[in-house]
Design a protein around this nucleic acid. Structure first.
Lengths: 119, 119
DNA sequence: CCATTAATTCAACATCTATTGAGAGGTTGA
DNA sequence: TCAACCTCTCAATAGATGTTGAATTAATGG
């Protein structure tokens, strides 16, 4: 992953509305959600504001969209999120896993088994 | 982790100089690096600019500092980084690990054994 | 105690970013 | 085709952020 992409992604995540959208879509799974549904879930966001942030997120590569009839469905781009995390934590423990192992354990994701969980 | 902390952290990471500093410190381990050494490693950054960004990072919680004689040593706060990632990816697979497992595998960190590595 | 080294603070300026409200583009079913 | 619906685009404004250079604080050694 290139630095410029990472910067764009972090910039996208540094805004309240956008961070909420990304977390919503991450939890929403691959099916995604229509723009209107996202707006309802967030509450109190004009359509133009929402559109601005969704476009921003799409340009950052963290979110993708497809049209379904009148709706535009947005969904999280999981590989992009993972690459971003990988870019940030690259070479985090230089042969000394004990340094960051407890930190990584905090990931608390069912699909990233930690030594503690022994999966 | 609270949303406001996450927003501050992502904002900190969305700036070129600061992202480079964090990655440098992540790779630098718990011992940390003096402000001057960080400046040299980055190349071409005035001391005031560097100080501005280091202070910004410290306020965000991603980096901590301690004085050692004339030097001020900065180091990464690993648990904060992990919490941030956890906050972003929370409930990313709602019982369907196959959705984000390949993504998480991209983490590529020796201290986060993936199913593929069977550690 | 003075000179030197290390790093921070401050104010001013330029730049970037988000919000708002009005209007326009596509899509569907009658 | 028309009306209803969902969403996007645009220009103006207000607010937040980064850079610069000069001055300042703090610690060390002679």
């Amino acid at each position: 992953m290139e630095e410029s992409q990472a910067l764009a992604a972090f910039a996208a995540l540094s805004q309240e509305t956008r961070l909420r959208i990304v977390r919503l879509l991450v939890q929403g799974g691959p099916e995604g959600m229509a723009a209107g549904a996202i707006g309802e879930a967030l509450g109190g966001a004009t359509t133009s504001r929402l559109s601005f942030h969704l476009t921003h997120l799409e340009h950052s590569g963290l979110v993708q969209s497809r049209r379904d009839g009148r709706f535009i469905i947005y969904s999280a781009v999981y590989p992009a999120l993972a690459e971003l995390v990988g870019f940030l934590m690259q070479d985090c423990c230089q042969g000394h896993p004990e340094i960051c192992a407890p930190a990584v354990a905090a990931l608390n994701c069912a699909c990233a088994p930690t030594p503690a969980r022994k999966a």
